[in-house]
Amino acid sequence: MLHIKCPHCGMRSQNEFSYGGDASIKRPKLNKEISNEEWDNFVYNRKSLRGKHLELWQHLSGCRQWIKVERDTATHEIFNTYRADEEIS
């Protein structure tokens, strides 16, 4: 079971969180004209990375905040966690 540091609450067990997928995906702006390809990339197309991955988790049974977690998908090592509004360099 992973141990995830919620930036708001501290270290918590994985079973308090739910997984939310790739955090690097940006939703296209509302009312913006975009191609089918661009839309499909947003809705469907994801990379199945091996290695460092920035992903979303929600601290569901805690503060209910969506957070960003930088995790290695192969080893499960967590390098860092960020608030939803934190810019990641």
Partner: peptide
């Protein structure tokens, strides 16, 4: 609820 929180926190803060 999670859906609304997702959009409020991440997409349209």
């Amino acid at each position: 609820l999670s859906h609304l929180e997702y959009y409020l926190q991440l997409v349209w803060p």
